[in-house]
Design a protein around this nucleic acid. Structure first.
Lengths: 245, 245
DNA sequence: CCAAAAGTGTTAGACGTACACCCATGG
DNA sequence: CCATGGGTGTACGTCTAACACTTTTGG
C-alpha cells in the first residue's frame, strides 16, 4: 500500500506519491531604479527549474522542509541555498495546498521577503537565478504566478498601514528615496510636502547630520528608528523573532 | 534509518516519527449574549483530546489533511467531523510549524471561522465538545493557546477594515445588534448615532420593512447586502471560494 | 406620564489633499 | 541667475468623536 520505505530516504526531495510533502518557498521583493526615469520598479529573483516537474520554467526559490527545522528557518535556509540572499524582512504569506498544484501532493508554505539594495549582492554570480520585473512575469512553474500576485497584493496593502517600506532601503536614505519606494509599490505619485509631514510626524525616522549631495539642494539623510517594530505582527511577534534570529 | 514502512499505514493519524505530517485546525468564533447584561462575549468550541499527546486537555477542532483534498476542504471537513458545525465564514489564518510543538513533527495549517447564532445548533449534543469564553481559556493542548490569541488579534484587526462582523449575525438584525458585535470584539462602546451613519453610508446594508419589537421603540431590521464581498481576500478570492463551496 | 432605546442634527477637532511659497545648490 | 528639487506654510474638504435633541414604544 505504501512505498515510503524505499522512497522517503535521505533527501526529502525524492518522490513519494502517497505522502503529502511540505515545501517552503519565498517571494523576494526588491526595487530596481529605472535608468533615466526617476521611479523604480518592483523586481524579484526566480530560479530556473532543473528537474522534472516544469523543468526549464522559472520558479520561486524554495525547497523541502527539513524534519528538524521550523518553517521560518526553512524559508531562510532554502532561499539562501538557491539564491544566496539573506533578506532583512521575512514573513509568512500563505499556505497553498490545492491537490493538483503539483504532480505529487505538495503543500507549500510560502513566505515573502524584502531586500535592501545593499543586500542584493550575492545572487549576481549564481547560475539559474535571474531578476524579473514583477509586473511582467513569464509563465512560472506550478501555481507560482498566482502566488506572486497574492504577494504583490499583500505588499501593496501592508505598505499602507505599516513601515515595511524601510525593508527596501539602505540604512540611510533621503525622504525622496523613501517616497519613491512608496510610489513604486502603490503605483501613484505622492505629494512630497504631505509625505514629509506624515512620515516625520510618525516618529519612525531619526534625522542624521549627513546630507545627500550631487543633485541640487542637498537632502537630509534619515535613519530608521529601530525602537519601533517594522510591522505589527500581533501576538506572533516574539514567536517569529524566535524562529528567524 | 526510517520506520515508515510499518508506521505510516492506513490512517494518517498513526504516529510516524520521521515524517512531517500536515494537520488542519480551525478557531471557530461565535458570540454568546451575556444574560442580564446588554453585551456579548466571544466564545469558541473546543474538543477534548482522547488520545495520547495531551490526552484530556482541550484542543482546537481539526484533523489530518487527506492526500486528496485541498486545505480549505480539509478545514471544512475536520471541523464538521469534530464539532458538527458548518461556519458561514472560513479563512486561512497561519501555518504553525515549530519543531517542538508536538511530540512528532506536525505542521498545522490553521483556519479561523465565524459562526452565526443560528448555525450554533449541532454542536450541542456532541460529546467532548464544549464552548469556552475566548477571554478566559484553560491551558490547551499543543500551542493552541497562542494560536487562539493570534486568531483573536486577527479578528479584532479585520473587524476594523472589513465587514466580517456580519458573519456573526443572523440574516436579519437591528443596528443595535450589529453594533453589539463590534463592541464585543473591540472591547469598547461605540456611539450609536455615529455607528448608524457609518454603516448606513457604506452601502453594505439593505433596510427591510420589518421591525424588531419587544423592548421600547421598534428597531428596523436590516439585511446583509450580498452584492458586496464579506472581506477583501485579494487575488485569492476565487481560489478560496473554489475550495470551500 | 416616564424611562429607555431608536433615530436625527450639529458642532469641534483631526486628518488628508492640494497648492502656493521660500531655500539652497549645480550648472 | 536660473532651473530644480528640498523644505515650509496654509487653506479647504472629509471624516470622526461628542453630545444635544426628537421620536416611539413598554410599563
Amino acid at each position: 500500500m505504501t512505498r515510503t520505505a524505499t522512497a522517503s530516504l535521505a533527501s526529502a526531495a525524492s518522490a513519494a506519491e502517497d505522502v503529502t510533502r511540505v515545501a517552503v518557498s519565498t517571494v523576494i521583493f526588491s526595487l530596481r531604479r529605472d535608468p533615466g526615469s526617476d521611479c523604480s520598479t518592483v523586481v524579484l529573483p526566480l530560479v530556473r527549474r532543473t528537474r522534472d516537474p516544469h523543468e526549464g520554467l522559472w520558479a520561486l526559490p524554495g525547497g523541502w522542509l527539513d524534519i528538524a527545522e521550523s518553517l521560518d528557518a526553512a524559508a531562510s535556509r532554502t532561499l539562501g541555498e538557491t539564491t544566496g540572499l539573506a533578506p532583512s524582512y521575512l514573513e509568512q504569506l500563505y499556505a497553498f495546498g490545492a491537490v493538483d498544484r503539483s504532480p505529487t501532493r505538495v503543500v507549500s508554505i510560502v513566505y515573502w521577503a524584502l531586500l535592501r539594495p545593499d543586500e542584493v549582492e550575492g545572487s549576481k554570480d549564481l547560475e539559474n537565478v535571474e531578476w524579473f520585473d514583477a509586473a511582467s512575469l513569464p509563465r512560472l512553474a506550478f501555481d507560482h504566478n498566482e502566488i506572486v500576485e497574492y504577494a504583490l497584493w499583500r505588499l501593496r496593502n501592508k505598505v499602507g498601514y505599516s513601515r515595511i517600506a524601510h525593508g527596501l532601503l539602505a540604512d540611510e536614505f533621503t525622504l525622496a528615496e523613501l517616497r519613491e519606494v512608496y510610489e513604486s509599490i502603490l503605483g501613484r505619485r505622492l505629494d512630497p510636502a504631505n509625505f514629509r509631514r506624515q512620515v516625520e510626524g510618525s516618529g519612525t525616522l531619526l534625522p542624521t547630520d549627513r546630507f545627500r549631495t550631487g543633485s541640487h539642494r542637498p537632502a537630509r539623510l534619515y535613519r530608521y528608528n529601530r525602537d519601533v517594530e517594522l510591522a505589527d505582527l500581533g501576538p506572533l511577534a516574539g514567536f517569529v523573532r524566535k524562529g528567524s534570529s
